[in-house]
Design a protein around this nucleic acid. Structure first.
Length: 676
RNA sequence: GGGCCGGUAGCUCAGUUGGUUAGAGCAGGGCACUCAUAAUGCCUUGGUCGCGGGUUCGAGUCCUGCCCGGCCUACCA
């Protein structure tokens, strides 16, 4: 039975380039789409740029151009990058389109009609100079709980407290460095709770979600009433104005998923198709591929919106994990924040497609790109085993062509043909790493066959030409089966195989019938071994790109400053209030119940001792601290904690967790000395 | 604190509803081959399946407690 399938990948935000982290998703989706097409299904694959929101507006302002100009450029760059990795969309649209505006209005109307929209006052900080309300991350100030300076508007990284930006002490707008004022505005909210029962059912039934995702939703959101969803933003905002609420705009997360539909609509208009066949027809399967960070938009809000507006619900939302490189988050400093563009300058996209395929499973686990493994996997699996099959047998077949009848091969071809269903099951369930393993087993068996048949010996015997032809016929047909099974992952290799044998690869079932009595073209290299030097160059390039503009000699990243902009200016008197002292760690012990804390006893010289709880457990061993000098903020108000009273704060930089770097004075400093 | 996922060979991972001596790839060692992009084939080293209990004729697999790692979430400070 032919299935009609509509597939989407999440819409990349038009605020930055595509990088190898994004590509996990687009490659995963593209493989699934190509697989379904090969199986003979009617598949369309839509995506678009996500263009709205404050971030785009701010960036356009900064660069002194219009938002339209910015997003046009990003869209072009994104599409170029995707094409470079053989990600083949049916249509690539934009959320900033008339089609999207109309669909937003339609769904909005349905939400209104269902009495799901309410208006509420929201008190927010407003930057009069920028003329806009400030989202939480555009405000910094002193934490109202622990008095830590430089904290974002919604929570404190130091003490983990959550609060409203209105409660911040000395708030500063990060846009203009001025002091914002408190203003109230009327926001529109979606009463999601009205759909509670529906969502509880939809998320738990029919395999719509991976089990861990369904559990997560049940445990975190659905166990209590769903909160109203703040769906409007006051002007100025780059997006669509809400038709029945002038001055208010739809929040970017309202119109972003609707962009899937708008992209479909654009394609339908272009090609004369029927939109309702895809979004208002129960027989169409809709599959969304997304990252785990946006799970709840796609599994709660989105199905609720579709349900209310009577559109098709997703058949399945496939959630994948994040990419790490060498076991760590991508880092510009380490050169592992690799853009699609930089990758393509150095390496073959097929490498990454295969590597991701060999690591991707059906669950939302994070995926690690280990560059050493990357290189050995490509070399061993693809070059050494798969391509090698063709390259070691094709040259004997050029003169002879393939036999007219399929020779005895000990059941190898039939076995591989039968394996096709298990491999297909693995692709279908997004268990690509299993599919790759199964395919590689076939390549192993085929190489063993060639080894035993020894065509190179037959080639020396003029009387053995028939046998030689038979051996090549088997080897090349086994190779072709593998090329077909790998075609979703490696479309280029499928094309090369077509050229080699002069027969098109059009369907999965082609792997069930051998090709016979045909000429064989001279073998041309299909894939090169991975050049380790290019990997290094790629890393180097990725480092350079982000350090451009900084002092050439040191290449320090500007990321820390961007993460945490400079604070408001202070006077020397302000500074003098802070009493910093050199102190010696005389004891340090683990606080077993705490995840981050070490209990540290400091000496300020003589008998003066201080006990401080410091959140550095993940970065330092207690025994390594004993004896060393640190800098202590000595006049900080004592703070009662669960484990005791903390009498100060040890100075350190870094983002927390393992990234904590204690300050220490140069040689000669004495405990108790004040730092001026 | 709560939730989810994981912990199997040096590394990356398979292990189907509990059923013989726990597997693969890579890496290591040896041999063979020399058609192929120093590719391939054969042999081989290597595992108290995180730890402790329990259920069972039988546990990597089921139950339970704990330890470790990742992610999520909350609170206290």
């Amino acid at each position: 039975m032919t299935r009609r399938i509509l597939v989407t990948s999440a819409l990349p935000y038009a605020n930055g380039p595509i990088h190898i982290g994004h590509l996990v998703e687009y490659i995963q989706t593209d493989i699934w789409v190509r697989f379904q097409k090969l199986r003979g299904h009617d598949v369309v694959y839509f995506c678009a740029d996500d263009t709205h929101g404050t971030a785009i507006m701010m960036r356009a302002r900064q660069e002194g151009r219009s938002e339209e100009d910015l997003i046009a450029e990003m869209s072009k760059a994104h599409q170029r990058d995707f094409a470079g990795f053989d990600v083949d969309f049916t249509h690539y649209g934009s959320t900033h389109s008339e089609e999207n505006r109309e669909l937003c209005a339609e769904i909005w109307g349905a939400l209104r009609a269902a009495d799901m929209i309410v208006e509420k006052e929201v008190t927010q900080l407003y930057d009069p100079e920028a003329g806009m309300f400030l989202a939480d991350r555009f405000v910094k100030g002193t934490c109202p709980i622990c008095k830590a300076p430089d904290q974002y508007g919604d929570n404190c990284e130091k003490c983990n407290a959550t609060y409203s930006p209105v409660d911040l002490i000395d708030p500063v707008s990060t846009l203009t460095q001025t002091k914002p004022e408190v203003r109230t505005a009327r926001h529109l909210f979606v009463r999601l709770e009205k759909m509670h029962e529906f969502l509880e059912q939809w998320t738990q039934e029919d395999d719509h979600l991976q089990p861990e995702v369904a559990n997560y939703l049940l445990g975190h959101f659905l166990k209590e009433p769903l909160r109203d969803w703040d769906i409007s933003r006051p002007a100025p905002y780059f997006g669509f104005e809400i038709p029945d609420s002038p001055g208010n705009y739809w929040y970017v997360w309202f119109d972003a998923p609707i962009g899937y539909m708008a992209s479909t609509q654009q394609w339908c208009k272009k090609t004369g198709r029927d939109f309702s066949l895809y979004w208002r027809n129960e027989e169409t399967e809709i599959h969304h591929f997304i990252g785990k960070d946006i799970t709840y938009f796609h599994t709660l809000f989105w199905p609720a919106m579709l349900k209310v507006a009577r559109f098709n619900l997703p058949r399945k939302v496939h959630v994948h994990g994040f990419l790490t490189v060498g076991g760590e988050k991508m880092s510009k400093r380490k050169g592992t924040y690799i853009t699609a563009e930089t990758y393509l300058k150095h390496l073959d996209p097929s490498y990454l497609r295969y590597y991701y395929a060999s690591k991707l499973g059906p669950r939302q686990d994070d995926l690690d790109l280990n560059l050493e493994e990357f290189a050995t996997k490509i070399d061993a699996d693809l070059v050494g085993k798969v391509v090698n099959l063709a390259s070691r047998s094709a040259k004997f077949a050029v003169e002879l062509g393939l036999s007219n009848r399929y020779p005895e091969d000990g059941g190898l071809f039939d076995h591989a043909a039968q394996a096709g269903e298990a491999i297909a099951d693995a692709y279908e369930s997004c268990d690509y790493n299993r599919a790759m393993r199964l395919i590689l087993e076939l390549a192993d068996a085929a190489n063993r066959y060639v080894e035993n048949a020894a065509p190179w010996k037959l080639a020396k015997d003029p009387d053995a030409r028939a046998s030689l032809q038979d051996v090549c016929t088997v080897a090349l047909n086994l190779f072709r089966q593998i090329a077909i099974y790998l075609a979703p992952v490696l479309p280029r290799m499928a094309r090369q195989t077509e050229k080699l044998l002069g027969v098109p690869i059009e369907a999965w079932s082609d792997a069930g019938r051998p090709v016979l009595g045909i000429p064989v073209a001279p073998f041309q290299r299909m894939l090169s071994r991975v050049d380790r030097k290019e990997i290094e160059k790629m890393i180097e390039d990725s480092r350079e790109t982000e350090s451009a503009g900084s002092d050439a000699q040191y290449n320090d990243s500007d990321q820390p400053l961007r993460d945490e902009p400079l604070a408001e200016e202070i006077t020397i008197d302000d500074f003098a209030k802070v009493d910093l002292r050199v102190a010696r760690v005389v004891a340090a012990e683990d606080v077993p119940e705490a995840r981050k804390l070490l209990k540290i006893t400091l000496s300020l010289g003589g008998e003066e001792r201080r006990t401080v709880f410091a959140g550095i457990k993940q970065a330092y061993q207690p025994e390594d601290l004993i004896g060393r000098l640190v800098i202590l903020c000595a006049n900080l108000a004592p703070r009662k904690m669960r484990f005791g009273v903390s009498e100060g704060m040890i100075l350190a930089s870094g983002s927390g967790g393992r990234e904590v770097y204690l300050l220490h004075p140069d040689e000669g400093a004495q405990p108790g000395q004040r730092v001026h």
